[in-house]
Structures are given as structure tokens and as C-alpha cells.
Design a protein around this nucleic acid. Sequence first.
DNA 1: TGATTTTATGAAAGCGTTTACATAATTGTG
DNA 2: CACAATTATGTAAACGCTTTCATAAAATCA
Lengths: 333, 333
Amino acid sequence: MVTIKQVSEKAGVSSATVSRVINNTGTVKEKTRERVMTAMAELGYRHNVVAASLASNKTHTIGYVVPELHGSFFGAMMGGTEQALRQAKKHMLIATGHSDAQIEKEQIDALLSRRCDALILHVEAVSDEYLVSLVHQGVELVVVNRFIEEIGDNCISLDNVKGGYLASRHLLDIGHTKIAYIAGSLFKADGKNRLTGHQQALADMGVEYTDNLTYEGNFQAKSGTEGIRALVARGAKFTAVACANDEMASGAMIALRELGRRVPEDVSVIGFDNVDFASYLSPGLTTIDYPVQKIGSMAAHWVLERVYGHTRHEYQHILSPRLILRGTTSSPE
Amino acid sequence: MVTIKQVSEKAGVSSATVSRVINNTGTVKEKTRERVMTAMAELGYRHNVVAASLASNKTHTIGYVVPELHGSFFGAMMGGTEQALRQAKKHMLIATGHSDAQIEKEQIDALLSRRCDALILHVEAVSDEYLVSLVHQGVELVVVNRFIEEIGDNCISLDNVKGGYLASRHLLDIGHTKIAYIAGSLFKADGKNRLTGHQQALADMGVEYTDNLTYEGNFQAKSGTEGIRALVARGAKFTAVACANDEMASGAMIALRELGRRVPEDVSVIGFDNVDFASYLSPGLTTIDYPVQKIGSMAAHWVLERVYGHTRHEYQHILSPRLILRGTTSSPE
DNA sequence: TGATTTTATGAAAGCGTTTACATAATTGTG
DNA sequence: CACAATTATGTAAACGCTTTCATAAAATCA
């Protein structure tokens, strides 16, 4: 590996000067710059970012923890982040937490050991206090899809309660009163909040909530299918089903078809997230838009501003979901 | 930040010893190890991987270039990789190449500057020669979804020709002869190869290939929709349509429905990749399975073995696709 | 027990940069 | 043109580890 030293010798300057041209810092005469550039090209020099990071105490790397890599959701989110970071020449070190507190902590720890300049965390199992304590230790982090009052400034989240409300409110508005709910994992904040929204909508419209119409799934398509089967098996009567995400909604649609129930004629279905394939289904899935890419990019801008001193960007710390009307909902007979 | 030095003083040992207990190298007496561990705990020591990387010339980091982050495909692939790497305590530095040769090169360069121990590349625009030259320079890399004879050992790919063949052969086998083809971007190797497979299947079965039945899309859902419209507009007659991926297949299904053509009764549809949502569609999409997660994990194992000396794993450098029969194909009337 | 292995530890030289700080070269001013 | 101000460059000390080599301590052996 050729070093800055060798370049400096070849160019007849000191290594400090070479460093200056590499980083575009300080002042260097045009002619000198050219000599250095030529020397670098001729020697095939490649900057050693590891050494630079050690010396400068900046890695230009953002640690990113997401629960999983597969599926449509996190890719879209990371895509939003990446787009913003790439222009700033920052990179992302990616780790998965698998919704397990132990693993999440280990991964956060590993990313900090690697001296990431900041962390973007989509973690679900670790406690609020733990995240708060990290912030108090001076770790630069933004928590995504989760709102923690005490460090609200570090959070970017969607109003899941409102989303849940919007979904069920839509069903109520078009005339449904017997609405089943397939929830996400209730130990996760978003799973719980979306259900809360559903309950609020029912309450607002004077419809009684009953556990008998609710099934706790796990955000996976299969649990949507199982949810419908379980609901029907327990004799629940419903003309609509709200699901805590699109995967479960598509699973539910499959089960409904198996049972000979048409969507939306017999049963309306609404999802949540508006992942890319929601519009591929037929009928297209009515759902709640989760501006996931936007959230990803806001997280990036937060970091760019806070950690790297880029100019101010506009934030909302709590984004609003909105209803996306497609073909899976209609008024009951 | 507390350093190894401070730990060593507190524990009354040298920093070399502290390094030994951190890395589990050399020999250190149990009692000493404990003293060091205690000191680390009390001081809240956090290992500085950047410094360690500089000194040891290993970053334990794999650079990963994919075209995009959104969609179901690359997440699944990276998920396969991550799972294997996590156990080995390696991390992934992720970059996107956007199918642009310039960007792909820049990203590869950036990852090398960060001294990644190895690269996993899903690149589409950069030339074979460029990748070959990297390998000859001694860069440890595995190329995914692309086969380059000269560095075949570094490649893990799917036999796309065979996949294309399998898809169209299935349609032919069940009696179709008028088969439209919605291709992926033909400047990409997989787009081209899948089309080649289609053509071979036709030839094998004595059906003439005609450009009039082929539309070049871009692997996105919308281009599937446009493909059907264009085909119909140019008066093409077909009873089946093979698509170069599942996104375009779902786009095609949408267009077919708009035109009042039932799937599969009037037109059979087959996709490619078997991404997660293929089974959510209704009818479920018949497609070709791309064992993408497996490929991701094979890439990881290649690296673990080659770069980190882990024990030998079984490879196939060219994997075989297989047909997944679901509900979108049936014999023509 | 003294000699010989073996095991445990320390000293110190890197690893390839960045970045004060100091100094040299250049430009500007009256 | 002398002197001040400005611009350009160099020197050398970090940055926090790993790792070789030497040496000290402990264990083994005859």
C-alpha cells in the first residue's frame, strides 16, 4: 500500500501538504496541488480512511440498526437515508437487532466500538431508559419509528395512533360497524399504538370494542391468514377487517378468498404502511401511508445537521399518516 | 474516551496484556485476565476498533454494493449475508450503485478506502474487465448475480438463461404457443439472459420467436403495465406472457385486468424471482425461484472462508432456478 | 535442586493519518 | 523599498491500538 509519505516524497512536499490536498483543507498553491495529484495518480495512491479516522476522530460513518433486512419496509427506509448520505459522502454500517433486546444492545455497542459518528436506530426491544441513557452519555443518535418524550428531539416517528384511527375511521365512515382487527405484535410500540387508534375510532363513533374481534398477529403475512381463520373459528362476525400492516392484510385477503368471501364485496380490508406491493394486489390494497422513505431521509438530515454541521433542514418529529384509498374497501350491503 | 493505557494502569499490567485479553490472543493468566476485565468494567472502557484496524490491518468489515436498497430483492439478499456475518462478528458497510458505472466505481473505491476486508458486489454497469482487474490487484471480492469466466471462483450467480427457459418452457408445456415476453433492461446481463432462455425454449419446441411479441421493460412494476398496453396496442396476440421479474408480472396483471382479460383463464402470467409478495397476489403468481437469500449467505461464507480462514463451506458458483407453480398459469382454451 | 521448557508479561516500534504550531515565501502598502 | 499582512509549507506530536521480541516467572524434569 502506498502511503501519504511516499506521495509527499515523490511530489517533493511534506505529508502535511498531501493531507491538505486530499482533504481540501488549509491553503495550498495550485501548482503544488497539481504536483501532489500527479504523484498520487502515478503511485496509485488510495487514501486510508481508517488512519484518517483515528487521527481526526471522525469516521464519516453512520451506524444503522434495523430489526430485519428482508421485506419491503426497511429497504425503503434505508434507501431514503442512503440517498441523503451519499451526497455527503457518508457511509452506513448496517446491523440487525431482530427485535431482541440483547442483540440490539450488542449491535449498538459494536457500532459504537467502530466509532460511528452517529447512530440511526429502529429498535423495538430495548427500553426507553436505555436509549435515553445513551443520549445522556453523549451518543449522537436518532430513534426512528418510536417517540420517547425525554429525548423527543432525537426521535422521528409516525403517529401510529392516528394511523390506526384513520384506518378504522374510514371503515366506520363508509358504514361498517362489525370491524375485526388483526394487530401486530403488541409488545412492540407500533403494534400497540395502532390498535389504540382503532379503539379510539370505535369509541368516537359509538361502537363498542370487543376482544373477540381482535387477533394478535406478528406483522407477518402468515399471521394475517391465521388471524382470519382464528376469528372465523371463534365465530366472530365482521364485514371489515383492519390490519396493522400490509403483509398481514394480504395474508388476510388470502384467507378470506379461501373461505369464499369476496373482497371488498363481502369483507372490506385495510392495511397499514403502504409498502410497494400494496398497489400490486388486486384489488389494490386500501391502506395507511407510512412515509417511510421520508423518515429515512429525515433521519439522515438530522445527522448531517447535528453531527456534521450541515445547514438546517426542516423537521417534523412526528409525521402524519394518511389514508390511501384503493380497491379493498367499500360500504357493506 | 478511556483507553487501553488507562485500563492497563488501573489493572497494573501493560497495555499489551490488555490487548491480549480483549482479543483473546496470546496467553494470559486467569487472575490477570480478571483484573483487566474488572478495570475495563470500572472505567467503562470501549474498544476502539478504528485504532485496532489501523494497527492490525483488518477491519472486520465487508463492503456491499447493491443497485438499490428499496424493493424486496436486495433486502432478502443482504439478509442472507448478514445472518452469516453476524455470527462471525463482521459488519457490512453498504453502498448503492444505481446501475451506473461511474457511481459503482466510486462506491467500490470508497469501500476500499475504508479498507474493507472484502467486497460483495451486485453491480450491473461496470465492465467485466474492471472487476477482473480488481481481483488481479488482490482485492478480495465476490460478484453476485453475474458470472465472469475469468474469475469464476469469485462469482456466485443464478443460471438466468435456464430460468428464462424454465418459465417459457412451462408455458409451452401446458399448451401455449403465442407467448408474449416482457423483458428486463437488456443492457443488464440478467435481463438479456432471461430473454435468451425464453428464446431457447421457443426454439426447442419449434415455436418461432418474433420481436413483435417482446417488450423491453426496466424491471419495475410500471413497465409491466406499460408492456401489456404496448403489446396490445401493436396488435400482438398472445395467450400467455412471461415477465423477466415479479414486479413486472404484477404490473402486467394489473394491465390485463384493466383490459378485461382474466388471469389465468384468458392469459397466463409467469414471473421471475419469487420475491416475497409473489405469493400474496391473487391468484398467487407462478414464477421462477431465485434463491436470493441463499446466494447472499453463500457470498458471506465465501468471504469468511477466503478472507478470515473459516472452515470450508460448500459452494455452487452457479445456482439453478426452479419453477414455482401457483395460480397464474393454466392451459389455453 | 539446578537446568530446561513452557507460560506470562512488558517495552517499544509501528500502523497512516491529522493538526497545532512554527516558519518560510509571497503579496500588499505607504 | 522596508515592513506588515497574508498565504503556503513543514515539523512533529498525537490518535489508540497490535505485535514482535526480549525477558521474567512458573512449571517440568532428571
